[in-house]
Amino acid sequence: MVRRKSPGRTAFIYCNYTLLALLSLLCIFPLIQVLAISFSSSYAAASGLVRFFPVDFTLDAYKYVATKPEFLRSFGITIERVLLGVSINMLVTILVAYPLSKDSSQLRFRTAFVWLFVFTMLFNGGLIPTYVVIKDLHMLNSIWALVLPGALPIFNVILLLNFFRNIPKELLEASFMDGANQWSTLWRIVVPVSLPALATITLFATVGHWNAWFDGIIYMNQPDKYPLQSYMQTIIVARDMSNLSLDDIDKLKNVSDRNIKAAQIFLGALPILLIYPLLQRFFMTGIVMGSVKE
């Protein structure tokens, strides 16, 4: 785009690259340390000797994790949850955001509707009443308890309705001229031109489902139905050191090994870390205008 670069511009570019590279280093550092600990001996890990490189390199931690059925099982449940949950999230989010992106002349009581949704973002009844509702719906111990209560992330709705609003009016009007109704306009025109926004929201929804752990522990009746993060929570949570038996100590040694924790943390985070690079190809500029021109 820019053919001739001024000296100032060149200096800026160099500074920019350096700065961003430094920022990246700063951000990758904790993960590097987790990775280094996971490849270190449990002694080195427990002594806090590991910084950036493994000490007493070993694969023991990964071998141990490989023998743990809990890890893989909960991983599978998380995949199921993410696939089901994100599909539902996206569907409902799009369905709600589209009408709300219209103005009051097209959707009467629009303002009231928006506030009805926004209100739920700020107020909630708390754990006990929510639990009772889920229980009365007989959703305890089923994947639906993890998927339905949060099926409409209001933040994403608001974000999406703002993106929808920016779609050029001519595009929609052309569609209506061709005789399309709201439904087909939404799916044939609005959704395809909103890919960057949808990619963003898919990412948020995925991350939201991936990171959620509390609902798993509360709504699932057996640990073998836990999604990954609920299981991880039981690993990384600090242990009460005031009341242990010899038997507990025996177990503590297994679960407190920091290299094993680190290996699970790393393996647990890996898939979600890979999601963003995959979604990045939807973040292309000019999609909206491109389709107007054609």
């Binding site: 111990n141 522990i217 009746n221 057996q222 640990p223 929570q233 039981t234 690993i235 949570v237 600090a238 242990r239």
Partner: peptide, 8 residues
Amino acid sequence: KWTVSTAG
């Protein structure tokens, strides 16, 4: 009825 971890 249910089983939960003693952690935390």
